[in-house]
Computed example of a mutant assay.
Amino acid sequence: MELNPFLSTDIQDLIQKLGDRNTKARLDAANALARKGNEALDEVTKLLNHDDYTFRRIAAYVLGKIGNPDSVEILVEALGDDNSDVRKSAAQALNRIGKPAIPLLIRALGNISKDVRASAVWSLSKMGSMVVDPLIEALASEVKDVRASAVWALSKVGTPSIAPLVQLIDNDEKNVRESAIWGLAKIGTPAIEKLAEHWNVRIGEDAREGESETDSVDISDLIAGGENAIKQWIKFMIDNRHKPEGLESTPESEVPKEE
């Protein structure tokens, strides 16, 4: 491995130590490089092209610790690395960088590689409420993989995604409606409770004997039936409790499938 001869001796030494056989020595060197910050940025970035995946994995880790937004693009590229440990390290680094990484991670949801999409979803889902609005916007994409990946990420974000998804179940665009329904179904119990509140539906013991199916819901039954049962309940409620003009159910076969 050739190093820049103009590098400070300590950075050269630390980069060499990234290949140490001792795990603690490698970690200590990585953290020391991260403390160097932008001074070490260029040389650490070059390591993402190293033949040894261990260097690539550690390089992604260090870039995440440094946290420079300029690293986002190459870290997103690293989401497609052949090695799963490198992909995971890159996803964690992007998660650590946070908000500046969101636009390129959203774009990565439509990548041809399933590994890239999965890594982008993982990274986005760990950012919490800050990614909800961009992911909601992604549900309007014409690309099926983008919509499916956005649903997956929103479901992993969980509770902060529920209210925005509920607002989309009446959307004029069929793909957006179906994606919202799918996302709510994946979230499960908290989403059903929010929908019951939205439709003023009684739950469990609050339900009255003999009430119609649009007036009460047994959450335990829906959860036991899985995502499909929840989706069908939401569609049933849309069709039979309130019927926005132009809203129609979509066959189950047209709902995007999670990979």
Rank of each mutant, 00 (worst) to 15 (best):
K174T: 11
D172T: 13
K17Y: 02
D81G: 09
S123P: 08
K17D: 11
L18H: 03
E77Q: 15
K46E: 15
N240P: 05
K65R: 14
H198M: 09
A191Y: 02
A138F: 04
V131S: 05
K257N: 00
E73D: 12
L79V: 11
E43T: 13
S113F: 11
E211C: 11
E227C: 07
D28G: 11
A118D: 14
V166E: 01
P69N: 06
A120F: 10
N171Q: 06
P244Q: 11
I97Q: 07
E254Y: 08
A118M: 13
R87H: 12
V146D: 01
L124D: 06
E258K: 15
L3T: 03
S220H: 01
F236M: 13
R56F: 10
A32I: 11
E259I: 11
E193L: 07
G98H: 01
M1I: 05
N200S: 14
T214Y: 08
D42W: 05
S155R: 01
K99W: 04
K24T: 10
V176H: 01
S149D: 05
V157N: 04
R21W: 12
D218N: 15
R35F: 02
S220A: 15
L14N: 06
E213V: 08
Q16L: 14
N171K: 07
A224Y: 07
E173S: 15
T54D: 02
Y61M: 14
L139Q: 08
V151A: 07
T54W: 03
M127A: 14
G183E: 05
N175S: 11
I136K: 00
N22I: 07
E205P: 08
I136L: 05
A93Y: 14
S8T: 14
R26Q: 11
N49K: 13
V255N: 05
L154P: 02
T23Y: 14
R202A: 15
K46M: 11
H242A: 03
K24L: 12
I58F: 10
I66R: 10
L33R: 02
L105A: 00
K231I: 09
E197R: 09
D13I: 05
I15G: 03
